[in-house]
Amino acid sequence: MKNSLHSNIPDTPFQLGPKSFKSRLLLGTGKFKSKADVQAAINASKTEIVTVALRRIDIDRHEENILEHIPRSVTLLTNTSGARDAKEAIRLARLARASGYGDWIKIEVINDSKYLLPDNNETIKATKILAEEGFIVLPYMYPDLYAARKLVEVGATAVMPLGSFIGSNQGLKAKEFIKVIIQEMDIPVIVDAGIGSPSQAAEAMEMGADAILVNTAVATAEQPAHIAQAFSLAVQAGRLGFLSQLPHKIEQANASSPLTGFLYENEETIHHNSKH
């Protein structure tokens, strides 16, 4: 699909494992009011990677499958949500692969029902085994540098540190720690969880994140397709800001226009007037 904005950005493609992508926005498909909204949001976001989950079917009730609403052209990234330890995450990953929809797995191991924070230790264990089995493993993690390093060591394709509590729309509460991970990692860093508005996505991209994953903010908006497009633009704007090497912050004012007087060039009009 031709996208004029993408092609105007002097950027390298987003390389993730064996594939390269134009879009740096990953979209989750949970919590949407309707499956038609999912499809509209995918199209509007121009995302090329979409996350899904696995669940037991209800054999007494037929529901339309989410895959019927996801274009074949996007890469399917199955998460291991529901897994409470490495063993369950591995089981879910193998089930996902058996479906024939590829071997891209977002490891998500959560055993705390209040804060839903990912368990980094179990995530490392699952990542190691699944990477050895040839999966493309993208672990969702608590932004801890040591854990991130360990994940790289055991074969993660990228790391996905959380911005804030999952589904909270609180933005980059973990900003300083994500910055450290971005600076120290040689593999892609995808900020996942808590990104609640396009400006927060742009901020993460300006910091140097390689990509962003959003779900709740899009799925629960009144107009999912519109906000999906806004996120797409914000991610591109933030990326371009990062690539342009943003100037440093300065404590004092620094005029953008010449500071000489309007008509009397040699009198420092503004300077004198400002002193009362």
Binding site: G28, T29, G30, K31, F32, K35, V38, T51, V52, A53, L54, R55, R56, I57, I59, N65, I66, L67, L76, T78, N79, S81, L95, S99, G100, Y101, I166, G167, A193, L213, N215, T216, A219
Partner: peptide
């Protein structure tokens, strides 16, 4: 799925049927 036709169900089997759903 290639093996579904060859797999006979036996008394007491525990069968899990899973599929894709929306998720983040």
């Amino acid at each position: 799925s290639a093996d579904w036709e060859k797999t006979f169900i036996r008394e007491g089997d525990q069968i899990e049927l899973v599929t894709f759903v929306g998720g983040g």
